[in-house]
Each structure stands twice: as structure tokens, then as C-alpha cells.
């Protein structure tokens, strides 16, 4: 009941924002209705998304690279895979370069944030965002929208980390440090090792993890999108 109300409110908010949004990618994103939360998860189109950032604070730090790929009818379509470097206006800390291996020189060859985020928003229209530990992606994306369009939006999002946490909690299993990391969760499902901290690799890895999580759920029951939304 509550969730229906929530989704109703989200949809109302979308229409409201649409009326006021400036022409451009944000308006394009808003012009497509949100997916009905009752839709079966298998037929929901998802965009698995990962950001590498210069730090964890969305008001100070910036998006360094963006990787995403579409999941349609249960299939990860590599033909849709995107990996984009963003040209940023601050020096990258050594700490962050060690993690994502994108140097200042590489970043200087990147594209403007407006172009990268704009195209991402167009791709997201009518789809649901998917990320592992989605807080980073949602807060940085909202922040970018505010900066670029003076307006922010709530994105419906599925978080594989949250699904995993629920799994542990429902079984009363203690969560030990590291248990919820993408790498360790993938290991549980026997998924192969991919290079971590590369935005596209992580996006593909997250999409595979979700596929495994869905496939391991009780398939006799209906699995509506709302069960997965954060």
C-alpha cells in the first residue's frame, strides 16, 4: 500500500518536474513514464551503472569515469556498453588515482560532464538504474543534474548490495566486513573475476550479480520490480 502510494507520488513528481524542466537531456529523461513497479523483474529494462569518482563527497568530489550497460529481457547487451572519461577541473588525488587508475592526463582527454551525463540521462529514460552500493551513483548523478540543469530528480534504483544485505538479514547471518563487496558476492555465485574499479567492468559485474541474485530467488513466486527497488 505504502509502496503504491510512493510510486504514485514519484510519478506525480515526474510529471510536475517535466512541466518545469528546461529543454535538454533532463527533460528527455522525464518525458518517459516510470516503469510500473508491479512489472515482472525479468521484463524490466535496466541500466547497470558505475561511477569512478575523485572522492566520496558528492559536493566536493567529481565523477571521473562512467560505465554502463543495458540489461534487457535478462540479457546483458554488450553492444550497449559505454565507458566514458570525464574531463574534470581539479587535480586528482594520488589516493583516488591508485584506485581507478585514471591519471590527470587521461582525464584531460575526457569529455565534458554535460555531454556524458546528458547521454546517460537519455539512456536511462524508461529504464531502472542498477548499481552496487548505489548511494554513490544516485548522489553524484543528482548533484551533477543540479549543477548542470539547476534541477534534481529521484531515480528509481536497484542496489545489489542492498539485496545482498536483505539476504543475510533474512537468514540471520552475521555480515562480516567485506561480505557485501561486489567481488565477494560474485564469488558466492561462482561468477568470474573481473578487474575491479573500472567503471564498465564494475557495471557488467554488477549486472551479472543481479542476474544471479534473481535466478536464485524462488521462481515460483511473482517477482515484481517493487521488491527490488531501494
Amino acid at each position: 500500500m505504502l509502496s503504491r502510494l510512493l510510486s504514485f507520488r514519484q510519478e506525480a513528481r515526474r510529471r510536475h518536474l517535466l512541466r518545469h524542466a528546461p529543454a535538454g537531456p533532463l527533460k528527455e529523461y522525464l518525458s518517459v513514464p516510470l516503469i510500473d513497479p508491479k512489472t515482472d523483474i525479468h521484463s524490466v529494462s535496466l541500466i547497470s551503472l558505475d561511477f569512478e569518482t575523485s572522492g566520496l563527497n558528492s559536493s566536493e568530489d567529481q565523477i571521473v569515469s562512467v560505465g554502463y550497460v543495458t540489461l534487457e529481457d535478462g540479457e546483458i547487451m554488450l553492444s550497449t556498453a559505454q565507458h566514458r572519461l570525464v574531463k574534470i577541473d581539479q587535480a586528482l588525488s594520488e589516493q583516488s588515482v591508485v584506485i581507478h587508475r585514471i591519471t590527470d592526463d587521461l582525464s584531460a582527454a575526457g569529455e565534458p560532464l554535460e555531454k556524458v551525463v546528458g547521454e546517460l540521462l537519455v539512456s536511462l529514460a524508461g529504464k531502472v538504474m542498477l548499481a552496487h552500493n548505489a548511494t554513490i551513483e544516485t548522489t553524484f548523478l543528482k548533484q551533477a543534474c543540479l549543477k548542470l540543469y539547476g534541477e534534481s530528480v529521484d531515480f528509481p534504483v536497484i542496489d545489489t548490495m542492498k539485496i545482498a544485505r536483505q539476504w543475510f538479514e533474512r537468514r540471520n547471518k552475521e555480515i562480516v566486513q567485506g561480505d557485501l563487496r561486489l567481488f565477494n558476492l560474485r564469488k558466492r555465485y561462482g561468477l568470474p573475476m573481473y578487474q575491479a574499479h573500472n567503471a564498465l567492468s564494475d557495471a557488467v559485474a554488477t549486472a551479472e550479480l543481479l542476474q544471479a541474485q534473481i535466478e536464485h530467488m524462488d521462481s515460483s513466486k511473482c517477482l515484481p520490480l517493487k521488491k527490488f527497488l531501494s
Binding site: L191, Q211, A212, E215
Partner: peptide
């Protein structure tokens, strides 16, 4: 080839190809 791949996870007992389409 990599750019044309589709990735699927099949639970034990599931069929390949995953759907008739």
C-alpha cells in the same frame, strides 16, 4: 565479437537458449 555479446546467467536446470525468441 565482444561488442556483440549478450551475457546470461542460467540457474541449474534452465534451458539454453534461454528463450525461444
Amino acid at each position: 565479437i565482444v561488442q556483440r555479446l549478450g551475457i546470461r546467467y542460467l540457474r541449474r536446470g534452465k534451458f539454453l537458449p534461454p528463450d525461444s525468441k
